[in-house]
């Protein structure tokens, strides 16, 4: 009697797997990504705050020279464990454009927590002009916008090497194992010792890549921890409710079956 239902359930499951686009379709062409264990993985993972704060430093000192992060505001940084005063200080390190003032002129002033992260270029054309025609993408949701997610970002940052024999790399491009097509306009962004971390962590390329990836994963999904915590409660609630509802149904149908 229940056979069609079971068959259909199995088929639906298979279909969802087949349709789950991100990981499966990525696997077709790109080289398998190294499996990096991040603190925020799994059903109950959370962001490693120390790592994300170091990642913020890497972003501010390295990435921010070319990449914007325009969906974020300095005020968001309190979620990484920074105090209000620290956030205010970080915001004040940049000059942002404001205005017009009473004379109708735009003017620059130090950043405030309610400002967006300052973009390195005023617009896309300026960004391309400064980067040989390539556009450094905004990093706000980059972890959600790339197949492979955080693993891919980490792999890309650590995947630079000399091209294998026989591979010609075009002028102004760089060889990267994990970039689709292997030729990327971005020069290797991370060099060992480039950043000096306040907490004394050794700034290896892998460490910086891991930290900045953690920071960007948080930037892309700042609601992740709250979402999972709420999800656990709701699934538990539904489990109990499901048991109760099933018992009621059994009871009601007892005299029919």
């Amino acid at each position: 009697m229940r056979r069609p239902l079971l068959t259909l359930a199995a088929a639906l499951g298979a279909a969802l797997l087949a349709a789950a686009p991100a990981p499966l379709r990525a696997a077709e062409e790109a080289i398998a990504l190294p499996n990096t264990r991040f603190s925020f993985e799994g059903l109950f993972g959370t962001f490693d705050r120390a790592s994300a704060q170091r990642g913020l430093q890497v972003y501010m000192e390295v990435c921010a020279n070319c990449h914007s992060l325009r969906q974020l505001y300095y005020r968001n940084l309190t979620a990484l464990g920074l105090s209000d005063a620290e956030v205010r200080a970080i915001a004040a390190t940049v000059q942002v454009q404001d205005g017009p003032n009473d004379e109708g002129q735009m003017f620059e002033r130090p950043g405030r927590p309610s400002d967006r992260f300052r973009s390195p270029f005023p617009n896309e054309k300026a960004a391309r002009a400064a980067n040989n025609g390539a556009l450094p993408p905004d990093l706000s949701v980059i972890v959600k916008a790339r197949e492979g997610g955080a693993d891919y970002i980490y792999a890309l940052l650590t995947g630079y090497s000399d091209p294998p024999p026989g591979v010609e790399v075009m002028q102004g491009m760089h060889y990267n194992r994990y970039f689709p097509g292997h030729q990327i306009a971005m020069a290797p962004p991370l060099n060992a010792g480039q950043v000096s971390f306040h907490d004394g962590t050794q700034a290896t390329v892998e460490q910086m890549a891991r930290d900045v990836t953690t920071f960007l994963a948080w930037a892309a999904e700042p609601e992740l921890e709250e979402r999972r915590a709420l999800g656990v409660k709701i699934v538990l609630f539904l489990t109990v409710l499901g048991g109760l509802v099933y018992a009621v149904k059994r009871k009601i149908w007892a005299d029919v079956h």
């Binding site: 686009p21 999800g231 699934v235």
Partner: peptide
């Protein structure tokens, strides 16, 4: 009964795999 089961699947999708069926 079906409704609660459906909501449970829905909740798992929303809270734990919200972007699984979307495209990066």
């Amino acid at each position: 009964v079906g409704l609660v089961a459906y909501l449970a699947v829905f909740a798992i999708l929303v809270f734990f795999f919200p972007n699984m069926l979307g495209h990066p």
